[in-house]
Amino acid sequence: MSTVRAARSGGPETVTVPLLPRLSRRALLAGTGAALAAALAGCGAGSAAAPDRAGPLRIGAIPDQDPELLQRLHAAVADSLADALGIPVEYRPVTDYAAAVSLFRTGDLDLVWFGGLTGVQARLQTPGAVPVAQRDIDADFHSVFVVNTATGLTPSDDLRPLADLRFTYGSQTSTSGRLMPAYFLREAGVDPEGFPGGPGFSGSHDATLALVASGSYQAGAVNEQVWLARTEAGEVDPAVVAYARTPGYSDYHWLLGPRAAERLGGPDRVVGYFTGLSPDRPTDAGVLDLFGAGSFVPTEAANYRQIEEIGRDLGLIS
């Protein structure tokens, strides 16, 4: 505050308006001092409230689709998980994939719904992190290459015609929107970085669909589950059509942080909660339905070895 005080010590130079009472130097300093004390008191109150071990279990997710949908999805999980574990659970939204990984490492997020690649990144950076569960569909997950109808392309297994199109991936470290499509493109002899003007990164599957619909990008890669959900709901612009489907790979999973694992006495209770979700119970069915899953199954680090290798190959894991 020295500037403020010092700046004001230039008394004789300043303008005086007679309508308001003059402040003496002492009154000014006392007022500033009181305000500063209030500020410090505010800070002190904040430090007392800083939660650590006794706070809620914080869950998060990579922002791979519509944030409002994610909010609904994870609010439902948080409620149901809080009932099952008997501790408060809260959902913290994040704005990008890398932030989810960083916040898992710093311990701000305890249990995160990661994609295959981000899950590997987070596990490599956070000693003691354990993969707990994945959906039944995640062991054999697929991506879909979509094209704008103006390209005139008809569905095919040959990825080579995509090489000459303006192409966008989803997020930089999306497994189904970047890593695996890039891998299968390379397998088919297409340079995954060599599209005209370089590939775009839309940020999310929904954004990819919107950009391909606009024609700014002529083709893109999206998560098959999102593609099917949007097609069923009739939300896909008719200008976007599916071109090819990739072979299967392992994708999304829940990753539990070391501090939370310690607090819960190991991952078993969390694994038990997820695998115990049953479509027969209405509340569980609601959660499973939001995730587009029939059930959750236990998973382990070894399931993502292929993802890790490909990630290293493509320079996305270092």
Partner: peptide, 20 residues
Amino acid sequence: PGRDPVLTASVLAVVGLAGW
């Protein structure tokens, strides 16, 4: 002599706002 009350009030308002 004396200082501009409007400027003084602005500075105090900023300090108060920072506390809040």
